[in-house]
């Protein structure tokens, strides 16, 4: 029994990580339809922000907290730059966007190698996050996982509030649903795109900060997580935050259960099979945004 509960907790915390890294994508890919392969490198940038800050600020706790907004700003700025320089020229060519941003991600990885060195580096975790919460003797929840869970929850709530209740949110939704109509209604679509990209990429930076708690960080850390993040958004459905949330936790749980009964490498294959099977049932993902599609 406790085994199941503790596997479930592992699953939920894997899901929380997945959700954090996918959340930004659910904005840029899910809402705008842009496939940004450099999203993983924005995550990396967030992680290295912690690393750099810790050279300046010695307290691990403070550096982590300060890193959150700075990483958001750094990754967000990179996102805006990318949108402005390249992506906005490619809105009509989604597949080409994928390849172009892959090129950008290669360049960013190499830049990280040149600046920080190729080997992975370890950041310091604050003492408060190194401990565990002991529920029963068999059921131990680690603090850093709980922190990530909380962070993911916070990010989802914040993003939902922004999308629902701010004028920026209304504009984003307007542009997503009908770009031309939004444009003629006086919404500066270009600026909305850039802001959306800022927030989406910024969330990648936050995810990067969270990932420093789970292990060493390195130039290729983005590539390792980006595919999973895309799968979450694909299976969750375009234009729906809640789809990504549900799928992230479902995938996390599935993965932890399969890993428990087999191995990590088998789990990878089975999760892929599960996603293909799922798409048989729901080709547009869990939730679909109905639009007239005939072209």
């Amino acid at each position: 029994m406790t085994v199941i509960v503790s596997q479930l907790f592992t699953g939920v915390s894997i899901g929380a990580v997945l959700l954090l890294i996918a959340l930004g994508l659910s904005l840029t890919f899910g809402q705008m339809g842009v496939i940004n392969m450099a999203h993983g490198e924005f995550i990396m940038a967030g992680a290295y922000t912690v690393y750099v800050l810790q050279k300046v600020i010695t307290g691990a706790g403070w550096s982590l907290l300060i890193a959150l907004p700075i990483a958001f700003a750094v990754a967000g700025a990179m996102g805006v730059l990318l949108e402005f320089l390249l992506i906005r020229r490619l809105y009509a060519r989604p597949l080409d966007t994928l390849l172009v941003t892959w090129g950008v991600s290669l360049i960013l990885q190499q830049a990280a190698r040149d600046i920080f060195g190729a080997p992975n580096v370890q950041t310091k975790a604050p003492d408060a996050l190194t401990g565990n919460v002991r529920i029963t003797d068999d059921l131990v929840l680690s603090n850093n996982r709980l922190f990530i869970l909380g962070l993911a929850g916070l990010a989802v709530v914040a993003l939902t509030l922004v999308l629902r209740f701010t004028s920026l949110g209304r504009r984003i939704r307007a542009v997503v649903q009908n770009r031309d109509l939004a444009a003629v209604s006086g919404i500066p679509t270009g600026r909305v795109d850039r802001l959306t990209f800022f927030i989406g990429s910024g969330l990648a930076g936050v995810a990067g900060v969270a990932l420093t708690l789970l292990g060493p960080i390195g130039p290729t850390m983005g590539t390792n997580v980006i595919i999973d993040a895309f799968l979450v958004v694909v299976a969750g459905g375009i234009g729906h935050l809640k789809g990504s949330v549900i799928v992230a936790f479902a995938l996390g749980t599935l993965q932890s259960l399969i890993e428990y009964s087999t191995t990590v490498s088998v789990a990878k294959v089975l999760v892929f099979v599960a996603i293909v099977a799922f798409l048989q049932w729901r080709p547009q993902g869990l939730f679909t945004l109905r639009t007239r599609s005939m072209a």
Partner: peptide
């Protein structure tokens, strides 16, 4: 099931990742 475009690209990429990790294991 009309999974196409970027969805297809991402799925095909995920398959490559899955196979590589599987073989390593």
């Amino acid at each position: 099931r009309r999974v196409r475009g970027a969805y297809f690209a991402i799925l095909s990429q995920a398959l490559a990742a899955a196979l590589a990790i599987f073989l390593i294991g």
